[in-house]
Amino acid sequence: MSDDDKALRLALAERLEASGHLRTGLWRAAVEAVPRHEFLRGGFFEPADSPGPTAWRPVLPDDRRWLGRCYDDASLVTQIAGTIAPRDIRGEILREPTSSSTLPSLVVRMLEDLQVEERHRVLEIGTGTGYSTGLLCHRLGDDFVTSMEVDPEVSTRARTALGQAGYAPLLVVGDGLAGHPDGAPYDRLIATCGVTDLPYTWVEQTRPGGIILATLSGWLYSSELARLTVGEDGIARGRLLDGQTSFMIARPQLPPPLGLLPDIEDGEERATPLAADALDDWNTRFVAQLAASRAQRLTLNRDGRTEHLLVDVDAGAWAALAQDGDTWTVRQGGPARLWDDIEETVTQWRADGAPGLNHCEVTVTPAGQTVTWSRACIGSRS
């Protein structure tokens, strides 16, 4: 441990404690001990300062900024397009990020919210760089930590980094949505990827009284952290914790390519009291996802005006919204009416006082996942 490394870890712990994310001494000791830079030896990507779509350029360990940046409270992209690592690129790349090192404040906030105790066995879904895995190992011991990663190359790099840092948990390559039944039951399960539907397999692999911590997301890309407790009846119940937590969605649950867009000239048209820009609000968008969980959103510029399009590829349903003066109209087609469902759900939520998402209750049964709010929350806000 060099003096520079130690000073950076101590400074990070101070910042996380001051911000309220790091709340207990045992997790502070983990942050002070686990070297985040060891998990970023392969470098990371930073957004390029250029107009247009976001381009990414590599920052490697020979860059004088690298070490300090490793201890910023920031998410650092470590993989692009499913296979491309920072060392693979010279210049810039315009593809989408597929793996990252999550900002430390969110990592420690989630670990605090997980409420682990000594000798608790933890299943982590999404090893990523391995930094959060290292923190768990420091807190609980290697034998109590199992971490799953869907990408073999990402898992291999994490294994190397964990070894360099002195940790040796059980690392499993596979679909995290299926969990790891060979090691069940677990006392705690934590997911560092977003899920559109929390798998019941996770409930089955968590002991009664155990806790599941995961980010519920959707294809409109509003998401929140949920903490559920598994009951003796095999049902997991809990609440959203609020805070606009965001993770990349688990790869098996990513939306399908939009492909050829539907012919939006046809369809039933009417005025709507709900403007398309209502979906710019994080909470409203999350509620809209409850009504149209598989809808994707895009904007089209046609004939000098902007149209807001929602498409459910699987159902073949679509809704196109446009503004004419103070009036919004919606045109819909396909076997379902996407905007009717969204409008009804958002209108009811607003009539109930638009309760903050931390008042939403989540239930996961063998039949699926439900998210509801209570009229008792009228007037409350997040």
Rank of each mutant, 00 (worst) to 15 (best):
G334N: 04
I125W: 09
V172N: 10
L123M: 13
D314R: 15
A288W: 08
V195Y: 03
T78P: 10
L310C: 01
H359A: 11
P355V: 09
E307G: 02
L216V: 14
W202V: 02
I190K: 06
C137M: 02
L177C: 13
S246V: 09
H138N: 05
S382V: 06
T129S: 14
R139Y: 12
L123W: 08
E153N: 02
M248N: 10
H359G: 11
V330R: 04
A367E: 12
E344L: 14
Y221V: 03
L171P: 00
L111E: 06
R251T: 09
P61L: 09
D187L: 05
L241T: 12
R15G: 07
P256C: 05
G316P: 06
S50Y: 11
S222M: 04
V364N: 04
G174Q: 09
Y167G: 01
D340R: 08
T201C: 07
V287P: 02
L260M: 06
V173T: 13
A214Y: 05
P252Y: 08
V150E: 09
A184D: 07
E153R: 12
V362M: 08
E92P: 04
E224D: 14
T272S: 10
A288M: 03
L254H: 13
L198N: 08
T329V: 04
L135P: 02
A336L: 10
A11Q: 15
P185W: 13
R119P: 01
L321C: 05
A317V: 02
L10N: 13
P252A: 09
R331N: 00
E117W: 15
T284Y: 10
P58W: 14
G25K: 10
E232R: 14
L298H: 08
R294K: 11
R305S: 15
L103F: 08
F247K: 07
R237L: 02
L298S: 05
E38D: 07
E112K: 14
T83A: 15
F39S: 08
R64Y: 00
P355M: 12
D88E: 14
A271Y: 03
R188A: 02
A191E: 10
T78R: 11
L106A: 14
R139L: 14
D341V: 09
A322T: 15
A74S: 14
T192S: 04
D73C: 06
T102I: 11
D277N: 12
L338H: 01
R36T: 08
P355E: 11
F44R: 12
A74Y: 05
R65D: 15
E46M: 15
G316Y: 07
A336H: 04
I264S: 07
R23P: 00
D314N: 10
G183P: 01
G174T: 07
R305L: 13
D341P: 00
D266L: 14
R90I: 00
L12C: 04
Q323L: 09
S223T: 05
V59C: 03
G368N: 10
L300F: 06
E118H: 15
F286S: 03
G126I: 03
L279Y: 08
